[in-house]
Computed example of a mutant assay.
Amino acid sequence: MSFPEEASRREGPGHFPAKIHQKLFNDKYEIIRKLGYGPRSSTWLVWRKSDDRYFAVKIYTIAASTRAEEVEIPILQSVGKFRWRPPYLSLKDSFWERAYNGSHFCIITSFLSTTVEDLRLEEETHKLPVDVVQRVVYCVCKALKELHGANIMHGAVNAGNVYFSTGTMRPKLDSEDRPSTTKIGKFYTVASQPLKHRFRWRDKTDFVSEWPLHLVNLGHGTSPQKSKFKPEPGNDYLSAPETLSQNPSVSPKTDMWQLGCMILKLLTGSNPPFIGGDDAYSRLASIQAALGDGSTKSIEALLVDVLDKRDAAEAAGFIRDCLRLDPSRRLTADQALRHMWLADANLG
């Protein structure tokens, strides 16, 4: 029997024990390969014989399945009603699948390739060029504008949730290695094989500005049916000040804080130092010391070692407006899209 490479003890009952060519949902879908995994789910490429089409199925752990059905599905259904319908956030199907260890909730969406975080880690210094980061931010803000306009908070804006599409309707599988398994302890695990794409961090700016990037994974989102946004227990909001108070809160502006932190990490190769700390009080003190005067100096100081003076100053201005201590003073996604720093980030 195959076990996923991501089996976790911390999240309660584990991942779905899938096998290649296993049939799902009364034989409607067939598993072709494993695309990846996370602490609460694994993702697989599946084939639907009835119309010869390929999709991605996200199969949740038993522990995460109920929340996925109750929280993520209503958000995905709301996204499906958008005037501009993000293709890779569109829900195609959902169902429960039973395994020997219990029932797992599954959602079907379009398949994607690898993430911007994977691209960052491919680079030796773990940093990305300014034009690449600008394109990433533009695509993220475009998705956030739609989500926030529908009163939906994403809740997990980071480079690991920004994916490349492959640019094809059918995955190119014939030229790639066949799925494989690896023995870990006494179990055999199916190895992940993300779909490849043709984009590289050294691409020319004109090409970068057409990259097909998509903010996905609404598993940490807040449903629009709720009258009030509430922090999700255990979620990492990157020390957004509003989450560190005695009465923590979140809102779509928390997404913008996460966006600012993501930009700093992509440009410098590491998380902002002012979000660290052993407790909420020390983290908040660190943030206030670094950003409390509302200037760009502390942010620019983090950038001058990796960017020229002009690029550092321009990027720092944008980041500062995402990292305002007062959430009401942060950029909205719509304002970010019209910011001068993103003027050349979209040609496609």
Rank of each mutant, 00 (worst) to 15 (best):
R48L: 03
K49A: 04
S50V: 14
S50C: 12
D51C: 09
D51K: 05
D52C: 06
D52R: 12
D52Q: 11
R53Y: 04
Y54K: 07
F55C: 03
A56C: 06
K58Q: 05
K58F: 09
I59G: 03
Y60T: 04
A64M: 07
A64Y: 05
R67P: 09
R67Y: 10
A68N: 10
A68G: 14
E69V: 15
E70I: 12
V71M: 14
I73F: 04
I73M: 03
I75Y: 00
I75K: 05
I75T: 03
I75E: 01
L76W: 13
L76T: 13
Q77K: 15
Q77H: 13
S78E: 15
V79R: 10
V79D: 10
G80F: 02
K81T: 02
K81V: 01
F82E: 08
R83D: 07
R83V: 09
W84C: 02
W84G: 00
R85P: 04
R85K: 12
R85W: 01
P86I: 00
P86W: 04
P87L: 01
P87Q: 06
Y88K: 07
S90H: 14
L91R: 05
L91C: 01
K92P: 09
K92R: 15
F95M: 06
W96E: 11
W96H: 13
E97T: 04
E97C: 05
E97L: 04
R98F: 08
R98Q: 11
A99H: 11
Y100C: 14
Y100E: 15
Y100G: 12
Y100H: 15
N101D: 12
G102R: 06
S103C: 13
F105E: 09
C106N: 11
C106Y: 11
C106I: 12
C106H: 10
I108L: 14
S110D: 15
S110G: 15
F111Q: 06
F111V: 03
L112Y: 05
L112A: 04
L112S: 01
S113K: 08
S113G: 06
T114K: 06
T114P: 00
T115V: 09
V116W: 10
D118R: 02
D118Y: 05
D118C: 07
L119F: 10
L119W: 10
L119V: 12
L119Q: 09
L119N: 03
R120K: 13
L121Q: 11
L121C: 07
E122Y: 05
E122F: 00
E122I: 00
E123Y: 11
E124F: 04
E124R: 07
E124D: 11
T125A: 14
T125Q: 14
H126W: 03
H126S: 10
K127Q: 15
K127C: 15
K127T: 15
K127W: 09
K127D: 09
K127E: 14
K127S: 15
L128I: 05
P129R: 07
P129H: 04
V132L: 13
V132A: 12
V133F: 05
V133P: 10
